[in-house]
Design a protein around this nucleic acid. Sequence first.
DNA 1: ACGTGTGAACCGATTCACAGCA
DNA 2: TGCTGTGAATCGGTTCACACGT
Lengths: 214, 214
Amino acid sequence: MAKKKQVRIPQETIRRIALYLRSLRKLKELKFNIISSGQITAYLNVSPEQFRKDLSYFGPVGKPGVGYRVDNLIHHLERILGIDRECRIILVGVGKLGSALLAYPGFLNFNFRIVGAFDSDKEKIGKTLGKVRVYDVSEMKKFIQHDRVQLAILAVPVESAQHVAEKLVACGIKGILNFAPVNLNLTQPVRVLNVDMATELMTLTYFVNRILAG
Amino acid sequence: MAKKKQVRIPQETIRRIALYLRSLRKLKELKFNIISSGQITAYLNVSPEQFRKDLSYFGPVGKPGVGYRVDNLIHHLERILGIDRECRIILVGVGKLGSALLAYPGFLNFNFRIVGAFDSDKEKIGKTLGKVRVYDVSEMKKFIQHDRVQLAILAVPVESAQHVAEKLVACGIKGILNFAPVNLNLTQPVRVLNVDMATELMTLTYFVNRILAG
DNA sequence: ACGTGTGAACCGATTCACAGCA
DNA sequence: TGCTGTGAATCGGTTCACACGT
């Protein structure tokens, strides 16, 4: 995955690439073979120039005067993101939200497989939700190391989030998708992405009030 | 809510203000009365300067040489975001994810109240989850207009998301928190915020591979 | 002619540096 | 002195404009 230049790649570029990929999958289903930057961005709130610029960080892939081969581009983007092979993930915290996430079909579509769920509630341990079995948190380390798991979804209550996150990092986890409404403080080289519904709603409220104010 | 200048306020500033608010609530619980920009940002991955700059868009609120009164600042930020009074929201799509969101306690903490849930499944209509009753989608308009609801959480399957979103806008909804993995195309003045778990995981995978590569 | 790829120009957000108040 | 508030400088990302390949 050779970066072309020493130029730093914006995080937003990566996020958009994930978006392009989702869109391309749909276009492929609809039997598109070749598409242009204008076609793919038409329904994405992204300009064609932005799309081409995003791709340019990773080297040429389209044909001037023609466009992009859909298959080719999908594979290219999957390689960039590192999801061209199966990514094993674990889920910690099998409450209401955690259970819902276990059933979320979107993950498998993109080569993510939840290999285990973990909780400290004896009631839940041993059960199987969807196709995923729930284990005791004390078994996390074994799992993470045996299956070379890099990513964890954290869906525990806010009180235990920091503690569990530290434990995950100690077990070797490199990326955390955090659903707990708290800022995790971790020193190790871990990447954390927060998904915070309440914060999103507050942001939305602000902008809605702006719309209504004119 | 007088904006001080004609300067456009960055969206990230608004998102961070929501973050500050969450943090301040916690500090208040811990009996802090006065805090400085350094104290509040210490655990937030935000610099004190950034914090002060963010606040500066909305006029002075702290005391030089002293800091900020926690109570005062909380109220100030709530007013900025428009959540100083109760915000009524609805939820559409009572599947696994929708049900989990109904039970999410974080909303109420910030003055959001889900006044109704909607689904097209006759099995679900009439039931009460948590304290929220599930209604037929055909009753949405009545609700939205009667309760002056501005915000909707969209948790329907991806196939119906665009259709339902259009319906919501037609009913007068001004902001949508969209959990369906699709880019909604809406022309009216509506604000859409997307929460897409698969996209987040892909982004995370990219950065984790970067960490491991050095 | 058409559409990609990309350096350059532009624009907006963050960081810096400091004036001013308690 | 300590900390806020903010113009100015810097930095990074997006947009523009166009050279090049088909």
